[in-house]
Write a protein that binds this DNA or RNA. Structure first.
Ligand SMILES: [Mg+2]
Length: 509
DNA sequence: GCGACAG
DNA sequence: ATCTTGTCGC
């Protein structure tokens, strides 16, 4: 019995690597004994984690539903034991329990406010419901904020939170610990919101709470991260400043050169796809497309508000087939979606949904996981050079290309100006122009993807694919004006939303 | 100050 | 993005 941590994980430039293969099971076997089930007398239950030798458990306050003597099931106490409450803070949804029998393994709390720099990091959630054995999920940190900035009308508005993508809506995961790859507890699961989980972060302030409850600071693992004064407000300006900060941070991880393990198929003059000699290395075969469709919320409760319902889609096409066959599709339905669209902040509306779809494929080791992702939205062609395509690429660490169907006016570029240049170029046989802003840099390219159309599409670098390569690839996957992966994602998400959204659930054949 | 502004 | 009918042309 003692402190459990997982040390086999490697680190790269200060970032923990994701757990791979057999590490996942090892990690689970190592950390699961620290996770307990908490059941209240009303029959409601959630999870918690043991944090010291003194048999203290952290869980979220709402799990108790007012019960002052919940029942705990631990790895060594399968039949349950009563616990008392050492600390209860409804405002920040934080609760410390103490139980008497046995000593169990415990986990280390990570009290830090540097989660911000870890957006994109993979985290691991273990929950324990009353009946099931421990349940394990890998997820990614997709954003951060506070109760206020996340739009949650509950408790202390400045309580730091972060969001994780998480596919399994496991009952009993409230209060479940969210571990980093080392097995340190970064936070605990609280709400589900807009299709992802909200995690209450543990920060420096919580150390004081723990000391006040006689938890022994010496014999339990407490390690402090870099703390920063937490100030927040939920005004639109403040949220946009926070979002800008996230974009600037993530941009440091952006790669704008070719950096991928596959090779491009070279279209031969006969029209068939020929291989650039059978060299070593895989060919590009699976290209993904993502999109989100929306419609008005029909639900009576939310009808008057701005809330909408939506459907995110991820499709994968086999580009080695002449018809560009769709070999995979998945959808994510949303209800009560009220994150606004604000120009240049599209990623904060759509990325959490799309990341979740990617994470689901990754967690299930799906053989069609895309080697490249085309994104319905710009990459570098963005006021701060970090549009949705960059955002998704960095967070999911996947090569991406940004596709815009309209021009986002940046650095003096205008629709009409672009079209004039394109017409001039057209007479010289070229079908694209590079978009050079009035301040110098190249933001992307405008391309006539169909012979007849005068309205171009806008291609820009997302992540790990250069502009030249992006143009080559887009040219080979355009059946119509909009590149086929995006076109399919668009068509299928709208179709799926129409057939499965509010009011239509299950009533259609 | 005003307009423009991916999806 | 969504709400929407017809209409023009290949
Ligand atoms: Mg779209």
């Amino acid at each position: 019995m003692g402190l459990k941590t997982y040390w086999k994980v490697t680190e790269d430039q200060g970032y923990l690597d994701d757990l791979k293969g057999s590490q996942l099971k090892e990690f689970f076997d190592c950390m699961a004994p620290t996770v307990v089930n908490v059941e209240n007398k009303k029959g409601g239950s959630g999870s918690g984690v043991i944090i010291d030798e003194g048999r203290h458990i952290i869980t979220c306050a709402r799990v108790l539903e007012g019960d002052l003597e919940p029942t705990i099931i631990t790895a060594s106490q399968k039949d349950g034991t009563k616990a008392s409450i050492s600390k209860y803070d409804r405002e920040s949804d934080f609760c410390v329990l103490k139980y008497q029998k046995n000593k169990d393994d415990y986990a280390e709390l990570y009290l830090g406010d540097d989660t911000v720099k870890n957006i994109g990091q993979e985290v691991y959630i273990i929950s324990m419901s009353a009946i099931l054995p421990h349940v394990f999920t890998a997820a990614k940190i997709t954003g951060y904020g506070t109760y206020g900035t996340l739009g949650l009308d509950f408790g202390n508005k400045s309580q730091p939170m972060f969001m994780v993508s998480d596919i399994s809506a496991v009952p009993g995961s409230s209060g479940a610990p969210v571990f980093d790859a080392r097995g340190r507890v970064l936070g605990m699961v609280t709400h589900e919101h807009l299709g992802y989980r909200v995690v209450r972060k543990f920060v420096g302030n919580d150390a004081a709470s723990l000391q006040a409850t006689n938890t022994s600071m010496d014999d339990h693992g407490l390690c402090h991260g870099r703390d920063r004064g937490e100030s927040s407000s939920s005004s639109s300006i403040e949220i946009q400043n926070q979002w800008r900060e996230i974009q600037d941070l993530l941009k440091e991880r952006l790669i704008t050169q070719d950096d991928f393990p596959w090779k491009l198929p070279i279209p031969s003059s006969s029209g068939n796809v020929a291989v650039e000699e059978e060299e070593e290395g895989t060919l590009l075969k699976y290209v993904g497309g993502v999109d989100v469709s929306y419609s008005k919320e029909l639900d009576s409760a939310a009808a008057a508000s701005t809330a909408a319902c939506g459907c995110g889609s991820l499709v994968v096409l086999d580009i080695t087939t002449p018809t560009l066959q769709v070999v995979y599709q998945d959808f994510f339905l949303l209800t009560n979606f009220d994150v606004p669209y604000i120009p240049s902040f599209l990623a904060f509306r759509e990325a959490p949904i799309l990341l979740q779809l990617l994470q689901k494929m990754k967690n299930t080791d799906n053989p069609f996981y895309p080697q490249l992702l085309l994104v319905d939205g710009n990459g570098l062609l963005h006021p701060r050079g970090f549009g949705l395509a960059c955002h998704l690429g960095v967070l999911a660490n996947i090569p991406t290309i940004g596709i815009g169907k309209n021009l986002h006016h940046v650095d003096g570029l205008t629709q009409s100006g672009v079209r004039k240049l394109l017409q001039a170029k057209d007479s010289r046989g070229e079908d694209f122009i590079t978009l050079t802003g009035s301040s110098g840099p190249v933001w992307g390219a405008a391309m006539r993807s169909t012979k007849g159309s005068c309205k171009p599409i806008y291609i820009s670098v997302g992540h790990r694919v250069s502009l030249n390569t992006a143009i080559k690839i887009v040219k080979m996957i355009c059946k119509y004006r909009v590149p086929e992966p995006i076109r399919q994602a668009d068509i299928r998400s709208r179709d799926h939303l129409q057939k499965n959204s509010c009011g239509n659930g299950g009533t259609l054949q």
